[in-house]
């Protein structure tokens, strides 16, 4: 049926927004507002805060790094001085007082003037590099022991019992070859021998 409304338009009843659209708009607005709020919070609150915090930490790091650099420089210098001290210590420990050792050795050879127990003389005395681990060096002697073989053994025994031998760890066992002299001097026979004495490693006294 055709409906004609004779009422002037200003007096007509206004028709409302359809419910579906209204709900859709309201929901849309609500959700949009929520989304905008969330984004605003995330962007302007959380993100900004994190960015501010990062900037502050970067500033703090710059100032701390200057101090850290100084601390590292101090550590480097400390290690350098520590190494120097270690070097000086090792130089001191490696020192062997050869004038003392050879002075003591000469006392053993001289044996207070007693020539009966042993009569030894040398063609050469020399120091050298160590023969094995745990040794600081070697003292080598070449010489003669006048008289019979017992006197050579006596000399070796006296060396090992002497104060001179405290800084040594071993001596070669006494061995040599018998030599007959052609002159009229006494004794007219001697045992020609060579011996090596191994020096203990430096600083052995402190380690005891």
């Amino acid at each position: 049926m055709i409906q004609v409304n004779l009422l002037p338009p200003e007096y007509r009843k206004v028709e409302g927004t359809p419910v579906a659209r209204l709900v859709a708009v309201l929901a849309g607005v609500f959700i949009t507002a929520t989304a905008v709020s969330v984004w605003g919070y995330v962007h302007f609150a959380i993100l900004a805060k994190e960015q501010t915090k990062r900037a502050q930490m970067e500033e703090e790091l710059v100032s701390l790094q200057a101090l850290a650099t100084r601390s590292q420089a101090l550590l480097t210098e400390f290690k350098e001085y520590q190494a120097r001290r270690g070097t000086i210590e090792s130089i001191g420990k490696s020192r062997v007082l050869w004038s003392k050792k050879l002075d003591e050795f000469a006392d053993v050879v001289h044996n207070k003037g007693d020539k009966k127990r042993h009569l030894v003389w040398f063609s050469g005395v020399r120091t050298g590099a160590p023969r094995g681990p745990g040794s600081a060096g070697v003292l080598s002697v070449d010489g003669w022991s006048g008289g019979d073989y017992t006197r050579l053994a006596d000399f070796s025994e006296d060396v090992q019992k002497s104060e001179f031998f405290e800084d040594f760890m071993s001596i070669d066992p006494p061995r040599g070859e018998l030599v007959q002299f052609q002159d009229a001097l006494d004794p007219n026979t001697a045992w020609k021998f060579a011996a090596k004495l191994d020096l203990k490693e430096s600083g052995w006294r402190e380690k005891q």
Binding site: D103, A106, H110, W121, F122, G143, G146, F181, L185
Partner: peptide, 17 residues
């Protein structure tokens, strides 16, 4: 080093007549 009175030189032949 102490001075030694009349200590024999270990590198000198001590053989005598």
């Amino acid at each position: 080093l102490r001075p030694h009175i009349n200590r024999r030189d270990p590198l000198v032949n001590p053989r005598r007549e």
